[in-house]
Design a protein around this nucleic acid. Structure first.
Length: 734
DNA sequence: AGCACGCCGACT
DNA sequence: GTCGGCGTGCTC
């Protein structure tokens, strides 16, 4: 019997081939030859040649279709020394690709986003004391040997540093035989969390709720819980108990957080309970750390990951629980390349892995509420704040009856509130979800409005920077002094307020107060963290902030929250406008009153009778949800879309119209095709090369997928430039 | 997604 | 006469 792969005449026996999912947008895996003697299995991470380069791919399931010409076949280069992707993970990636209509290779790519992590981390060189005394003793040598009396190994630089010597002292001791070189396993990125490190501090309804979650973990089966409770009701402590139980069962945990909520204070709370921090996973992780975390997640060394949405694609060794905190947060939606909602994909991941998922929010998404009402999710409710935290006293300020002074945006009612607050040496927070100085600039002489040359939305003046900017595509120019249309100087008028303009008004009224503006464009993440800490220490009197002040951070001295324009965001065409506004107002007014201070909220609105405003002041979220769910059902919006509705959006409204016409022709039976202009389209679309996208709402997701596939097949020219997003219908994925 | 190839406008 | 824009096509 021959064992050679080649016989005497150079004839090759047919090579074994396997499907390999490569990180490119092909509809199916590619076939590769397996070299003689190479062991691969489904899930193996392999290095394969692809065109002119090498890429990392994953050996996929099923046999090879054998349709590739022999001469095209190329061999797998190497198999990485790395645990293969589990069957579960492969199934999950396939499922996500199918559901989001993304080529599977691009979904797989998300699971391999740690370039150099596929080979084991190198062993670290260490020094172990032998107990042998050197012939000559010096003070430096004494110090080193004193540190190593316990016999444990050290790294060379660590030991030199700890003993306050240079590494040449260590080298001398090594040469004398006082140390021997050993190889140590690479250090873990985080210490192992201990489920019993600190006793949980639970009271009242927290106890039962935690017990319910723990019971779910013990059962070890798929199930979704929606943990709902107002700010300060102790939701985190409650789901920490589910995490503890999962750790006791020896399984890994994933905590998803919106990127902005992944703060030092969250990590510290975790550490207080479990004695160690979770591993972090987010976009601005240092590459080296990123690789270590990825590696140690696949090997199971990392037990808990706290991460942004992309952490969902980490190949865990033995995942046993996913917690989605702030589950309503729009940041869970990715609308770039692969379109998905991490909240819903987390539920799918849990279903495939047959373990529990916990969705957590003070203001759940309407979708999750509907799923809970239908009994798909188990509803867990924490009704009260604990400790001495009281809910703020909320009032609407009817702007028709209490209008601001000419040229201002703050009503006398709110100004009086601020004055009283700072008199008491407490803090006031003014919330306005609009960056910059003014959202629109026009010429008082000819009426010219400054518009973005790239995408035609209004240009926003940023006075601190002396620029006018487009918030959709990032276009910016210096603020001109003259009207570009009629050439008149000094007649440009700023229309409407942004945070910078509110700051100006506040400084006019309270020149002696310490005022600070918090806006994502004015500072990086680090600066922001420092500012937030300074504010918490009481180093500001009046804080003016955009959306970012609504999240997570606690301000113990904050006793007044003023909402400058509560109506903002209700008027755009977003089907979730009311829901978003409700969530935002609820969360931002909840920032006050966390430490027993008597606190107030003043909400400026021109629509005091609007259901969102009524729900906010009545402190009755139930009424809001009930009404909103009814409205959605009537309007056939998510999560109740019964008609197929397709939204086409492009670089210009005219272009979107043209695409929509084509679509109506291609699919005459599809109802509800509507068109969005660029202002409503996300940043990613305009920046990217893709010309338009479809948003699909459908009760029967599979029907919609079939329709889109047909459409793609009919329009070869459009195929290359098409992006599809399924807006999740919760009934189609469970 | 990358990368090469290829066909039309402003410049060393 | 070339450099370089991005449209089109291909990768087992």
């Amino acid at each position: 019997m021959k064992s050679d792969s080649t016989d005497l005449f150079g004839e090759r026996p047919p090579a074994r081939t396997v499907p390999v999912m490569v990180p490119v947008p092909t509809p199916a895996p590619y076939s590769y030859a397996v070299p003689e003697g190479m062991a691969v299995e489904p899930g193996s991470i392999v290095k394969v040649p692809l065109g002119p380069r090498f890429v990392a791919g994953v050996v996929w399931d099923g046999g090879d279709d054998g349709k590739v010409e022999r001469k095209k076949l190329r061999p797998i280069d190497t198999v990485f020394d790395c645990p293969p992707l589990s069957k579960e993970m492969r199934e999950f990636l396939d499922w996500v690709a199918g559901y989001t209509l993304t080529p599977p290779g691009l979904v797989v790519r998300m699971a391999l986003r740690a370039p150099a992590a596929f080979d084991p981390e190198p062993m670290v060189e260490g020094l172990r004391p032998t107990g042998h005394r050197p012939e000559r003793m010096t003070p430096a040598r004494e110090r080193v040997l004193a540190l190593t009396e316990d016999g444990l190994p050290w790294t060379r630089s660590g030991l030199a540093h700890a003993a306050g010597t240079s590494s040449s002292v260590i080298d001398g001791l090594l040469a004398q035989g006082s140390f021997e070189t050993v190889f140590l396993p690479p250090p873990p990125v985080v210490a192992a969390p201990d489920p019993d490190h600190a006793a949980p501090r639970l009271e009242g309804p927290q106890t039962e709720t935690a017990a319910a979650l723990v019971e779910g973990v013990r059962a070890g089966r798929f199930g979704v819980s929606l943990l709902e409770g107002i700010t300060g009701s102790g939701k985190t402590e409650v789901y920490f108990e589910a995490i503890a139980e999962t750790l006791r069962a020896g399984r890994q945990v994933l905590i998803l957080l919106p990127e902005i909520a992944l703060t030092a204070s969250f990590l510290e709370r975790f550490q207080d309970r479990f004695g160690a921090k979770p591993a972090e996973w987010h976009s601005d992780l240092a590459p080296r750390t990123r690789e270590k975390v990825w590696r140690q997640v696949t090997t199971g060394q990392v037990r808990v990951v706290a991460g942004a949405r992309s952490a969902l694609f980490l190949p865990f060794e033995n995942l046993g629980l996913i917690v989605v905190d702030e589950e309503h947060d729009p940041a869970y939606k990715q609308e770039d390349r692969v379109f998905y909602n991490a909240r819903d994909m987390a539920v799918v991941r849990a279903r495939i892995g047959d373990f529990p998922a916990v969705l957590v929010s003070a203001t759940p998404s309407v979708e999750s509420r509907v799923n809970a009402d239908l009994g798909r999710y188990r509803k867990l409710h924490l009704p009260t704040r604990y400790g001495d935290a009281a809910l703020p006293d909320l009032h609407l300020v009817d702007m028709r009856r209490h209008p601001p002074a000419r040229g201002g945006f703050l009503s006398p009612v709110l100004l009086r509130g601020i004055a009283k607050t700072i008199e008491k040496e407490e803090q006031a927070l003014l919330f306005l979800n609009r960056r910059g100085y003014a959202p629109l600039t026009l010429c008082r002489v000819c009426g010219h409005r400054f518009q973005c040359p790239q995408c035609s939305s209004w240009l926003v003046e940023h006075r601190f920077r002396g620029q006018i900017q487009c918030h959709h595509c990032g276009y910016a120019e210096r603020t001109p002094e003259a009207c570009p249309e009629c050439g008149t100087f000094d007649h440009l008028a700023a229309c409407g307020p942004g945070v910078e303009r509110i700051a100006e008004e506040v400084e006019r009224h309270f020149p002696d107060a310490r005022t600070i503006v918090l806006s994502s464009d004015l500072m990086g993440v680090k600066r922001l963290r420092l500012e937030l800490e300074a504010i918490a220490r009481g180093e500001a009197d009046i804080v003016i902030g955009t959306q970012l002040v609504a999240k997570g951070h606690n301000f113990p001295l904050m006793s007044l929250v003023g909402v400058v324009d509560a109506d903002l965001g209700l008027a755009n065409g977003d089907p979730r406008a009311a829901e978003r506004t409700f969530q935002l107002l609820y969360q931002v007014t909840g920032r006050a009153g966390r430490s027993g201070l008597k606190s107030h909220g003043l909400i400026q609105t021109y629509q005091p009778l609007h259901p969102v405003m009524q729900a906010i002041v009545s402190g009755d979220p139930e009424a809001f949800y009930e009404r909103e769910i009814g409205e959605r059902e009537k309007a056939l919006l998510p999560p109740f879309g019964r008609l197929a509705s397709v939204i086409v959006s492009a670089d210009s409204r005219a272009e979107a119209e043209a695409h929509a016409r084509g679509l109506r022709q291609a699919a005459p039976r599809v109802e509800g095709i509507s068109v969005l202009g660029p202002a409503e389209a996300p940043l990613a679309m305009i920046r990217g090369r893709h010309r338009f996208r479809l948003l699909v709402h459908g009760r029967r997701g599979s029907d919609m997928q079939a329709f889109i596939r047909t459409m793609l097949a009919n329009g070869p020219k459009e195929r290359a430039s098409l992006q599809v997003q399924l807006d999740i219908d919760p009934q189609s994925f469970l």
